[in-house]
């Protein structure tokens, strides 16, 4: 079975889906991402789907589930690069992916995630004792 590579960049994980995934590959990606969020203490996940010319209900659900799981694990997910024809089709299919943050391209997506690094650390907590 094909495995989609996951790259680590600072506190973010980056995935670019370049193949037409069957359901098994999609589930494997979801599991791999969840596992790597924990292992690398990732704060952000960027999923580039610009190469996907079809997102059906299964892949849409995988994206939504991944975002939900990441959220529970204290990481934010951004899906970037959805083709306009895919967006039109997804909405007509009945999937609005409301829980997913999206951006037009990788650059904009990284900008969204970069904000996460600006969260102030609780550095002063010790000084009060």
């Amino acid at each position: 079975m094909e495995r989609i590579p996951i790259l680590k960049l600072g506190k973010c994980l980056i995935v670019s889906i370049q193949v037409d995934m069957d359901d098994g590959t999609a589930i494997t990606l979801q599991d791999d991402l969840t596992e790597k969020i924990v292992r690398h203490r990732a704060k952000g996940v960027l999923i580039d789907i610009s190469a996907l010319d079809v997102v059906d209900s299964f892949i849409g659900r995988m994206l939504a589930n991944t975002a939900a799981m990441a959220h529970v694990l204290d990481a934010e997910t951004v899906v970037v690069g959805m083709q306009p024809s895919v967006a039109i089709t997804l909405v007509e299919l009945g999937l609005s992916l409301k829980g997913i943050r999206s951006a037009l391209n990788i650059e904009k997506g990284m900008e969204l995630l970069r904000g996460i690094d600006d969260v102030p650390e609780l550095a002063n907590a010790d000084e009060q004792h």
């Binding site: 359901d23 010319d53 079809v54 059906d56 299964f58 024809s85 895919v86 089709t89 299919l93």
Partner: peptide, 17 residues
């Protein structure tokens, strides 16, 4: 058209699954 292609391919994917 690209949108027509995407719609019929997506429908096919749902029904094949």
């Amino acid at each position: 058209s690209l949108v027509e292609q995407t719609k019929i391919v997506t429908a096919a994917s749902e029904l094949a699954r």
